[in-house]
Write a protein that binds this DNA or RNA. Structure first.
Lengths: 220, 220
DNA sequence: ACCTGAACACCGTTCAAGT
DNA sequence: ACCTGAACACCGTTCAAGT
């Protein structure tokens, strides 16, 4: 009885899902999604690329596991908060989801590109639906709200992280927008220019979240 | 004076942005974004891949032009509609945006992965902001609503089109969800299961859009 | 049992050279 | 001026063979 229950015949593995996952998330944080290749990940693990396929059937599988792992902190952050009624709890949940995506470089792109169905992801979903059912919303309204809040949050954070990246293509969006608007063609965009080129994504997220919550309140 | 104003010295080009763009959108419709490679596009145009770079600096450039082209029909579809007050016009705009993304395979993925700032895209944005300003919302509220509606719509359609794709990885999401929920671990998801595994994305979109509109109404 | 070596079938992009 | 040929520096994935 040296350490584990299974006999462990042959050499002990140098690799496992856990170490691979941690290294992949580190590499993501350092280099971004486009630089996260199976070959570079293997190199960081001091192994050849082919070896990764013993633990993850495809790269997509690995990305799904990464997305699920990103959701790990959300439940705790939510439980810790003291947030009153259903609307406060819903806000807390949505903010924690955005924060979890923002906590990893390209987090929203990874999450949007996969379909995580692990315990963390399902736990968050269950909690959110539970908050709404507890507040008297129907099962159908609660389920639809889950999707609406998730889709809005992911859509928002996708934009937010895209705006944060260097945008190596050249001119950034605000600059292009300012230029196009200056020509006088888009009067309404011109009026909202200061907000449109603002980088206060938190205020923007809170605005959208506020609309959803008020819309829900009107339905009770 | 044979045909155009410019002298056209040398052979007439076999390629141009317009034909390349049309062929690229055709290829997208037939094969999806993952199969849209510069090499395959070149083959469809009966040319070698290197030739494409005379018209588009990078693949990202081509994708941005495709995203802009997808927005072409939105303004017309919006103008044709007879939709009453600001809330009806806002709904029409959001529905037309979703329809434009759905009209092309992987449309939302293409749109989300680029930052189109062409006249169609800016025209839609200007119209939406104009509707809200005309209804008495502040410039800031109008601009923030633009982002909220766009982010929600793109986030929703990303999910919708992902659910429509074959999902070659194996079991589909509803199946996985049903299985996980059956274990009894997620009581609230279990209650909403019929809605959660429903494929009525139009109803889902309308629910979210309705929340946003009602939220806006509460702000006037 | 676990990993390497080596290959297969691709990618986006560049650029000298041809026409 | 426009396109080809050929290369550069990569990809994800598979699988016989080694240890």
């Amino acid at each position: 009885m040296s350490e584990t229950s299974t006999p462990a015949r042959g050499r002990p593995p140098r690799l496992d899902r856990e170490r691979t996952l941690r290294t992949a998330l580190d590499l993501l944080r350092q280099s971004g999604l486009d630089a996260l290749t199976m070959r570079r990940l293997a190199e960081a693990l001091d192994v050849k690329a082919g070896a990764l396929y013993r633990y993850f059937a495809t790269k997509q599988d690995l990305l799904t596991a990464m997305a699920e792992r990103m959701m790990a902190g959300v439940a705790d952050a939510t439980a810790a908060a003291d947030d009153g009624d259903w609307s406060g709890q819903l806000r807390t949940l949505a903010r924690a989801l955005r924060a979890a995506l923002l906590a990893h470089r390209d987090g929203a792109r990874v999450f949007a590109g996969t379909h995580a169905t692990g315990p963390h992801t399902l736990g968050i979903a269950d909690t959110l639906v539970g908050v709404l059912r507890g507040a008297g919303f129907s099962d159908e309204e609660a389920a639809r709200t889950l999707f609406t809040v998730a889709n809005f949050t992911v859509g928002h954070t996708l934009e937010e992280q895209a705006a944060l990246e260097p945008a190596d293509g050249g001119a950034d969006v605000p600059a292009l927008l300012t230029e196009a608007v200056a020509a006088g063609t888009y009067p309404h965009l011109q009026a909202g220019l200061s907000t449109l080129s603002s980088t206060d994504f938190t205020a923007l997220f809170e605005f959208g979240l506020g609309l959803l919550v008020d819309g829900l309140r009107a339905r009770r």
